[in-house]
Amino acid sequence: MSRGRRPAGLALLAVLGAAACLGPYLTRWNWAGVDVTAFGDPPSPRHWLGTTPAGRDMYAITLRALRRSLAVGLLVASGATGLAAVTGAAAGHLGGWADRLLRSVTDLLLILPPFLIAAVASQKITGTAGTALLLTVLLWPVTARAVRVATRSLREEGYVLAARQLGAPAWAIIRRHVLPSLAPLLLADATLNTGAAIVAESGLSYFGFGVRPPDVSLGTLIADGAPAATVFPWLFLPPVLLLVLVLLAVDLAGAGLPGRPSPRER
Rank of each mutant, 00 (worst) to 15 (best):
L154M: 12
A84M: 04
S217I: 07
T220S: 15
A65S: 10
L12M: 12
G50D: 06
W31Y: 15
P42W: 06
A188V: 05
A80Y: 02
G92W: 02
V15F: 14
A170D: 07
V36M: 07
C21K: 05
G225I: 00
A80W: 01
V199G: 12
R100Y: 04
A19V: 09
S122M: 10
I125R: 10
S205D: 07
T81C: 12
L248G: 09
L161Q: 14
H93M: 13
L182Y: 06
L134T: 03
A226K: 13
L135R: 05
L102N: 03
L185Y: 00
A200C: 05
G40T: 06
A71L: 15
I111H: 14
L248A: 12
R28N: 10
Y25F: 12
A84W: 03
N30D: 15
F232R: 05
A60M: 03
H177D: 10
P239C: 01
V231Q: 14
S181E: 04
W29M: 08
V231Y: 10
E156A: 15
F232Q: 05
V36Q: 10
L12N: 10
H47V: 07
L102Q: 06
L192S: 08
T37P: 00
L22Q: 04
V250G: 02
R46S: 10
L185S: 02
S262A: 11
T143L: 08
R46F: 03
S262I: 05
D251W: 02
W29T: 01
M58Y: 01
D215W: 08
P238T: 00
Y59T: 00
A144Q: 03
L241A: 13
R264S: 11
R260W: 04
V15H: 06
D251Y: 02
